[in-house]
Nucleic acid binder design. Structure first.
Lengths: 291, 291
DNA sequence: TTGATCATTCATTAAAAATGAATTGTTTTA
DNA sequence: TAAAACAATTCATTTTTAATGAATGATCAA
């Protein structure tokens, strides 16, 4: 069944004449005849009763009704794709590391959503390593994460460098000090995010360099969760500043004077996806303006 | 946009491979490639990202979703037409004269409706003349009416002959008699159905032959209405027996001993509409078994 | 019955889709 | 890092399908 044939059918039904339909659709009459004959044989039913005037058969009327569905769908699909070209519709699958997803993305995505209400947004929170994998697999359109292990299929554009600080419970001895040093970590129970990432690697390296080997008590794969553990006195943790702008009650932030690790955060995406679509491009542009 | 191409697209999306799709759809690989290329250029967007593994682009995912609609509707349309072939769906436009529509059709249509609940029924009540016109115009699939003026485009199959009787108000002098004769009509106020039909023509002819020229006081184009007029004493009326099986309160039925008109009722339809469809055929068969 | 109006038929042409062989590009593995 | 393996693409060719135009057939109205 050809969609053009269905259009022809609907035109005939509307105009009540093969000839007029042929004129309107810029066909020769015989073409119309043959299209309908083919359609009829495809469907196995006669659609028109022929005479000088033509009438829809019962089957014809039925088909007329239902075929409308098809043409409307076709219109809808074509329209959708056109809208998509202008970035007005579609779905953007965003991957983000937790601090980004929780503390920065909401205010970035809100205006985007207002401007393009038909663009669906999907947010996947995970660590940089997994996000990178998902980007490579094509499961995400863009990821906001830390510097990944680059390869030739991906592109990473840094956005900003995230500072980190120490989060300590109020009753902890270190909470007395204005600033802390890496050497203060000696013997402390350190809580870490539960996956290997650049930030964690740098931290551990810095600690080793400072001659400190802290006691790693607990790993959790959520920074938000980590804060709760600090709060109840489980230990101390190094977390991105953005996550502790408002430190949880019973905890305090300390700058680490001699820790020089900055965690680079940026946009990761596949190379060569010029066809990512305007929606993704628009979003990336918007994100960049925020930093 | 070709529907087969869309099917190919969906298959690729499902199997994640041009090659596998080609196998499943019994194409050569290159065909699949070219179909998709055409589709992409038609839509103006890239649908897949190519590599050893292929991925849907954002546009591809969007199209995937929307195109599903199209294919589902296509299925639906094709199914509907298949059902129609078995008389299980469709719409039957029935025309009927009033006595038929009110007193006989309901009990005929009920079992039909139970057996074929998806077949829509439409009933148009009118006189034989108009029904005939509608049949010729293709506005009805079948009509149950009196013998029409036949022509070569229509076919009339008689079902039964309707007897007529006289309906009189109880307080009327004629209600005393067991039977009436045409001569009794002399000077009576006769009520008639308001359109020219075989039954009315025969009646008037019979009256003239009996030397009676009754006083025609009122015409209504509804037999049901006619009964009401008789009931309130407006006059007397000759009506089909079926309409007065239960004469309205305050009225009585009298056989007219010397009136020999029988009103033939039958099925009228267009000749050559072999393609009327199973539903119509089924209904006609059912109607015939009732008489 | 004739002429006018449409739809249909059919041989021909034109266009589009499918094929198969060769090629390019990517990933895997040796 | 080369090469084998795999998958998509290109392109010339064939096949299929659709469109055309002229002739024919059917129906209606005068």
């Amino acid at each position: 069944m050809d969609l053009r044939t269905i259009k022809t059918f609907q035109t005939i039904a509307r105009l009540g004449s093969f000839q007029k339909a042929a004129e309107e659709l810029k066909y020769v009459q015989s073409t119309v005849t043959m299209q309908i004959q083919k359609l009829e044989s495809d469907l196995g039913v006669k659609l028109f009763e022929r005479g000088k005037k033509i009438y829809l058969t019962e089957a014809g009327r039925l088909f007329h009704e239902k075929a409308d569905l098809l043409l409307r769908d076709l219109d809808y699909v074509q329209n959708t794709m056109k809208q998509w070209l202008h970035g007005e519709t579609g779905k953007v699958r965003i991957g983000a590391i937790e601090p980004m997803a929780i503390f920065r993305l909401p205010s970035i995505l809100l205006p985007f959503n207002h401007k393009y209400p038909k663009v669906q947004l999907s947010i996947q929170i995970d660590n940089t390593q997994n996000l990178t994998k998902m980007i490579k697999e094509g499961e995400l359109d863009l990821a906001i994460c830390n510097t990944p292990n680059l390869d030739h299929t991906t592109l990473f554009e840094p956005l900003f460098i995230e500072e980190v600080s120490l989060l300590v419970p109020k009753e902890h001895p270190l909470s007395e000090k204005e600033q802390v040093e890496l050497s203060d970590f000696k013997g402390e129970r350190l809580l870490l995010s539960g996956f290997v990432c650049n930030y964690r690697i740098s931290l551990e390296k810095s600690l080793v360099e400072a001659g400190v080997s802290p006691d790693i008590q607990l790993e959790v794969n959520s920074m938000s969760a980590l804060k709760e553990y600090v709060q109840v006195g489980f230990g101390i943790a190094v977390v991105p500043d953005v996550m502790v702008k408002n430190p949880p009650p019973g905890t305090e932030i300390k700058k680490i004077s001699d820790l020089k690790i900055g965690v680079t955060t940026g946009i990761l995406r596949k190379i060569n996806t010029v066809t990512n679509g305007t929606a993704v491009e628009n979003l990336i542009r918007l994100i960049k303006t925020h930093f």
